[in-house]
């Protein structure tokens, strides 16, 4: 199939950036979306043009590196799928495809489709952990944890930190990302000890980074490649209120 691509090109953080048009010819339906871009890039390179820069690494949907908005939807049209796992069979000959970077004040564009997501790391550094040092921990079976609690924690912990939730939210809010970590840890007994301080610090850092507020669009949940539900945002709100009363 042949496709027309409209791609955001931006030389660096200072550049204003613009959309550019490319034709992708003879695209195989078996290709992944990134492989399609690889082929376009190979041609650009050989034509003496600058290839399109995009983040990617594991290409199996778990590292969270790949990040692009396809026709207005982060990671593209397939539910529960990162763009590296999105295959061209979901597109049709003659399609026009808009490819843009994540858009958020807290995720400034570095180049083309690559954005700076270190804001997420700083939120984690503010409190996304249990304060235990290596060594001296009790035997792993000392505290029984109900299967249900462990499963819920795992549901939240599945977050890959890609930032699609922010990119999809009309307010560029990071609530789903932050709540996934808060919920992961607070559903486990080990994580309850620091629960109040953790949620306070992580929310404060989230606000400081310039993310928007949650207005319950639920758009984040719809694009999350790990399908993390917004109920975790509710849980974080609850934990946040609890933390306020605790003080």
């Amino acid at each position: 199939m042949n496709l027309t691509l409209y791609v955001w090109r931006q030389k660096n953080a200072q550049d204003k950036g613009h959309m550019e048009t490319y034709e992708a010819r003879d695209v195989s339906p078996h290709m992944s979306f990134l492989e399609m871009l690889d082929v376009v890039n190979e041609q650009l390179l050989l034509d003496g043009k600058e290839p399109i820069a995009f983040d990617h690494d594991c290409r199996e949907g778990i590292c969270g590196m790949c990040s692009m908005t396809i026709n207005g939807i982060p990671h593209g049209p397939e539910k529960g799928t990162t763009v590296c796992q999105l295959h061209m069979r979901h597109f049709h000959d003659g399609d026009k495809i808009y490819i843009e970077p994540w858009r958020a004040r807290a995720f400034p564009v570095v180049k083309d489709l690559i954005v700076d997501r270190t804001a997420f790391d700083r939120i984690m550094q503010a409190g996304g952990f249990i304060s235990v040092n290596t060594g001296g921990t009790p035997d792993a079976n000392t505290i029984p944890i109900s299967k249900k609690a462990a499963d819920t924690a795992m549901d939240a912990a599945a977050c890959i930190g890609c930032g699609a939730c922010v990119a999809a939210c009309k307010n560029a809010s990071a609530m789903l990302f932050v709540s996934a970590k808060v919920s992961h840890l607070v559903n486990l007994p080990q994580g309850k000890i620091e629960a109040a301080e953790r949620v306070r610090k992580m929310v404060a850092q989230m606000d400081k980074e310039g993310f928007g507020n949650c207005t319950n669009y639920d758009e984040c949940e719809a694009v999350c490649p790990k399908e993390i539900p917004v109920k975790f945002i509710a849980q974080m709100n609850r934990e946040f209120l609890k933390a306020k009363f605790k003080k």
Partner: peptide, 22 residues
Amino acid sequence: SNIIDQCVAQGVPFAREYGGLL
């Protein structure tokens, strides 16, 4: 063995049996 202890203390959500053990 120490690794498992360490990871559980960090909050790694390993699979559990219904009785709550790993």
